[in-house]
Design a protein around this nucleic acid. Structure first.
Length: 791
DNA sequence: AGCCCTCGAGTTCT
DNA sequence: CTCGAGGGCT
């Protein structure tokens, strides 16, 4: 046996590489790891570099891309690349109207002409990419072109060579001497995202969407650029055929193409009649968001060529095929104006008011613009034409501005300097993204939101007090603080309704309707009454303190157990609660420092709000509760944990510390710098008072906080559980409460700290993430079984 | 100082 | 659901 010649080796390498490509891109069953592929490719590359005469045009090394071409040559398609007629689904069908009429018409026309009992269609997803034509002579790829106007396209052979899913040489046998294959070059979504993520990191150019990514990549003048773009390809038709035969149906041609080495979509099917088409349409539509590529519809083609020939063409579109489009997920519309909204915390949020468009099957007129930074990034202006998207996430967003359509004379948008509702100044904290109205509760918008929040389901849960009534109650002055809700009577409500009707010009209620109004008022008063019985965590959440959401409210309730304690707490002590830091503690302190807020709490209690679950502080509060931690929590300059410990040892009682001169701090062991800083800090009367009060409260807390014993550990103690998807037997909230009762911590998002994910019906990204991280996953049945066992 | 994890807040339409 | 930012750990 002699050693293989370089020529033999080159052939062997090419075969291996081609085979690996085929398995990876066509069969979707990679047979060698990427690294091995790269090694083989490098070996071949080196071999060819040493023996240039061994280089062949179909060699895998030639995919990498040669020197840039000045411009693309024109290619005349031997057989024109057709465009398809479109069928749209009627989005708001009138009663009795068939939303699929256009598809039915298409099928009916064929049925009338062909007069067959059954019509079989080859169906496939319509990829959102770029149509191309590939020419093979004697089984070797010789030329590739874009669709262009259908008759003439551009020669992008060099760029197409870089796409590994396109075979350079046909496999198997039986191919015609000349074969033109048509298909779609596209960018898989995962590749698109990965590409953009990297581009963002490296400061490169971000692709607008996968379609633009594919189209832009193919038209790169330098194939080496194309080679870096992650493109893929699916074949869906055949053009010119010479010196060979094709099967008699489209579906069998596709199977043949696959044998010859072309990727063909795994979603292709053959279906019977119009119902078959529509089933397919609905099936793909339902799975649209989970497909690994973007599609804008499905394509129906009469499967047999005989029938196709008989149907023929109208102008340039075949009468035997049609594209059935999905409702667009992106639409162009005109932004009429940028408005702002004022939220509960005063956040001034800009949003776009647009001319109504159908996006993803619903009419969209408004979309959030998040904040001023986002507007600056997009550079959206009044009157701009914009692209609106409503992707899997339902909530519409402005994707970008169509600059070519910008009317003359527009100016960049800027945040109003004053609140549109109350006229207070709009301010922004250093380094923050959000501008806020400084009016606080003098601002009607903030008051309204505060009342709405107070009444909301997760807060005081006043059923029937929705946005509408909050608006009127607030506007007409019946309710200026949340405590006013508990002074309302049925008479007030009826009077309010009468005035509201007058104001809005609504026809006054008839006597009969008056009865209905009474009923409504009775119900609302009863709901308000019911809400008087509440829990500490709901109450704290309802107050709407900045940075205090449900979770923080719950923690406060658990750790301190008593409203009276909390409302008088010196703010640094809030930091004793896990997950509460300086920012949140200060916010709590700020809230309770305001006499107006204390008054509201007094009023609520005086008007019958009862908080049911007062209990002593959580035993763990004792841990590290003392003078030292108080000093640390006060954030005194130069007073670190070490210094605080020294001080605590020297001054077991805070009173003595408050009045002590600086030299006593030095005697306690502090360096003079720290001692002086502390003395200077204490000069400020508010500081001294805060420290003194802090000392008292620490002593009080220590006196009422029980020792150890945190109760029996539940079976889920220390576990973090995430609930996702819909449950049949109970709501997610109920399930969460039950899990918490067993000791679990219920979190909202999946991370590597998550111990367990309960996935209900139609679970989405959280389930995917759990699988990715290898976290234990239960279905509802497992959850119910577990709960039953441990109830 | 930087990273990871959570929480809070705001949001659209039927 | 997504973004921004607070909290805590390394």
């Amino acid at each position: 046996m002699t050693a293989p010649t370089p020529a033999d080796r080159a052939i062997a390498l090419r075969r291996q590489l081609d085979d690996a490509n085929y398995r990876y891109h066509v069969l979707d069953e990679p047979n060698i790891p990427d690294a091995e592929y790269d090694r083989l490719l490098r070996e071949l590359d080196e071999l060819e570099a040493a023996n240039p005469d061994l280089i062949t045009p179909d060699s895998p090394t030639q995919r990498v891309g040669n020197a840039p071409s000045a411009r693309f040559a024109e290619v005349r398609h031997a057989i024109p690349m057709l465009s398809l007629g479109n069928a749209f689904t009627q989005e708001d069908p009138a009663p009795g109207e068939d939303p699929y009429q256009e598809v039915r018409d298409f099928v009916r026309r064929i049925a009338e002409k062909l007069k067959r009992p059954h019509l079989f269609f080859s169906v496939e997803p319509k990829l959102d990419g770029l149509a191309i034509s590939l020419r093979y002579e004697d089984g070797v790829f010789v030329q590739g072109a874009t669709r262009g106007d259908g008759a003439t396209g551009e020669d992008v052979t060099a760029n197409l060579r870089t796409i590994k899913a396109i075979p350079m040489r046909l496999r198997g046998k039986g191919w015609p001497r000349v074969l033109e294959v048509r298909g779609e070059v596209y960018m898989p979504l995962a590749a698109f995202r990965a590409y953009n993520e990297r581009a963002l990191k490296d400061g490169g150019k971000v692709l607008a969407n996968p379609r633009n990514g594919a189209a832009g990549s193919l038209r790169q003048l330098d194939p080496r650029m194309t080679a870096q773009r992650p493109l893929a390809f699916y074949a869906y038709a055949v053009g010119l055929v010479e010196g060979g035969e094709l099967p008699e149906t489209h579906s069998r041609t596709l199977a043949r193409l696959r044998d010859w080495g072309f990727p063909v979509s795994a979603e292709n099917r053959v279906v019977d009649g119009v119902e078959g088409l529509l089933d397919y349409y609905r099936d793909i539509g339902a799975r649209r968001d989970t497909l690994p590529f973007d599609i804008d519809g499905v394509v129906y083609k009469l499967d047999d060529y005989e029938g196709q020939r008989e149907m023929g063409f109208v102008s340039r579109a075949p009468r035997w095929a049609i594209a059935h489009k999905f409702p667009a997920q992106e639409q162009m519309t005109v932004l009429e104006s940028i408005e702002v909204n004022v939220g509960r915390t005063g956040a001034v949020t800009p949003w776009a008011l647009m001319q109504p468009v159908q996006v993803g099957g619903v009419t969209v007129t408004r979309a959030t613009l998040h904040n001023a930074d986002q507007i600056a990034r997009l550079d959206v202006r009044n009157g701009d034409t914009v692209i609106v998207r409503r992707a899997g996430d339902v909530i519409p967003e402005v994707v970008r501005v169509v600059l070519e359509r910008r009317p003359p004379g527009t100016r960049p948008w800027s945040m109003p300097t004053h609140c549109p509702v109350c006229g207070s100044e709009v301010v922004r904290e250093e380094g923050e993204a959000i501008w806020r109205c400084s009016g606080e509760l003098t601002c009607a918008a903030q008051r309204k939101e505060a009342i709405g929040h107070f009444a909301s389901r997760r807060a005081m849960d006043i059923e029937g007090l929705g946005e509408r009534y909050v608006e009127v109650l607030s506007d007409l002055g019946y309710v200026t603080s949340v405590a006013d809700l508990y002074r309302l009577s049925v008479e007030h409500l009826l009077e309010m309704k009468r005035r509201a009707d007058e104001r809005d010009g609504t026809t006054p209620e008839t006597v009969k309707a008056g009865k209905v109004a009474t009923k409504w008022a009775d119900n609302l008063i009863e709901a308000i009454d019911r809400s008087r019985n509440t829990t500490l965590e709901r109450f704290l959440f309802a107050l709407g303190i900045q940075h205090v959401g449900e979770s923080t409210a719950k923690a406060l309730a658990l750790w301190f157990g008593d409203l009276e304690l909390i409302r008088r707490m010196p703010w640094p002590l809030f930091k004793r609660v896990p997950d509460i830091g300086g920012e949140v503690a200060r916010s709590l302190g700020h809230f309770f420092d305001q006499p107006g807020n204390q008054q509201v709490i007094d009023d609520l209690l005086a008007r019958g709000v009862t908080i049911g679950d007062a209990h002593p502080p959580h035993p763990k509060l004792r841990e590290d509760l003392g003078v030292a931690s108080l000093l640390v929590d006060l954030e005194i300059p130069k007073v670190t944990r070490v210094r605080a410990d020294q001080l605590a040892a020297a001054f077991p009682r805070v009173d003595a510390l408050v009045d002590a001169p600086a030299h006593q701090f030095i005697s306690a062991g502090l360096p003079s710098e720290s001692a002086n800083a502390l003395a200077a800090w204490l000069e400020v009367p508010e500081h001294a008072a805060l420290l003194a009060r802090g000392g008292q409260v620490v002593e009080h807390l220590l006196s009422i906080t029980p020792e150890g014993d945190t109760g029996p550990a539940g079976p889920l103690e220390g576990k973090t559980v995430v609930l996702t998807g819909g449950l049949a037997a109970m709501s997610r909230d109920e399930a969460g409460a039950k899990l918490e009762a067993l000791g679990a911590k219920v979190a909202g998002s999946v991370s590597k700290k998550t111990s367990l994910v309960v996935a209900g019906e139609a679970a989405g990204s959280k389930l995917a993430k759990a699988q990715e991280l290898g976290i234990e996953i239960w279905d509802e049945a497992q959850l119910l079984a577990f709960l039953a066992k441990h109830a």
